[in-house]
Computed example of a mutant assay.
Amino acid sequence: MTSERMKMAAGEWYTCLDPELEELRDAARDAVFEHNGLPPRQRGGIGPALAALLGGAGEGARIEAPFHCAYGFNLFLGDGVFLNAGCTILDTAPVRIGKRTMLGPNVQIYCAEHHREAAGRRAGLEIAKPVTICDDAWIGGSAVILAGVNIGNGAIVGAGAVVTRDVPANATVVGNPARAVTRR
């Protein structure tokens, strides 16, 4: 029998109302609570419980508090990654953030898409799509990155942008939905 967690990992429709998934979210909430509650000098770059939960965190990776993630184990941070205060990452699928990438305050990354039909949403059906942000990207404050998006090396996402499509390397996108602009 295929579990809801296995369906989620395979990118198939699954129900988020599953007890195993709820238990995993509880573990993430506990780790995030510790991270957010520790004094900054005690916490270091990433609180101990959150660091242990993450899929991976490179040297010098840092997450400011407050922070929220859904599962944690699907979040992979490269060397020198910086997540500013208020970031939310709903990592129902892998989220890979490349080396030296910076996320401004309140950036949101959503890997889950809910069912288009009301009956499917009532049943808790969703599908998870990975998000990749390559090396040296800069994601401006309050930007939203939707499921399945890839952001290339050196790209810039303007503050408040809603990214619904892939962003090529070294491109700058702004607006809702995010559109390419010429760099000055």
Rank of each mutant, 00 (worst) to 15 (best):
A28Y: 09
R29N: 13
A31P: 05
A31S: 10
A31N: 11
F33Q: 15
E34R: 08
H35P: 03
P40H: 08
R41V: 00
Q42H: 02
Q42D: 12
G45S: 11
I46K: 03
P48I: 01
L53V: 04
G55M: 12
G56P: 04
G56I: 01
G56V: 00
G60E: 09
G60A: 07
R62Y: 12
I63M: 12
E64S: 10
P66R: 09
F67S: 05
F73G: 08
F73S: 13
N74E: 14
D79C: 02
C87N: 08
C87K: 10
L90F: 09
R96Q: 11
R96S: 11
R100V: 00
T101I: 07
T101A: 03
T101G: 05
N106W: 03
Y110N: 06
C111T: 15
H115D: 15
H115V: 00
R116I: 02
E117D: 15
A118I: 13
R121V: 04
A123T: 04
I127S: 03
T132Y: 03
D135S: 07
A137P: 05
I139G: 00
I139H: 02
G140S: 09
G141R: 10
S142F: 03
V144Y: 00
L146G: 02
V149M: 06
I151A: 01
G154W: 06
A155D: 09
I156A: 13
A159P: 06
G160H: 07
T164G: 02
R165W: 00
D166Y: 03
V167C: 05
P168F: 02
N170Q: 14
N170A: 10
N170S: 12
A171M: 09
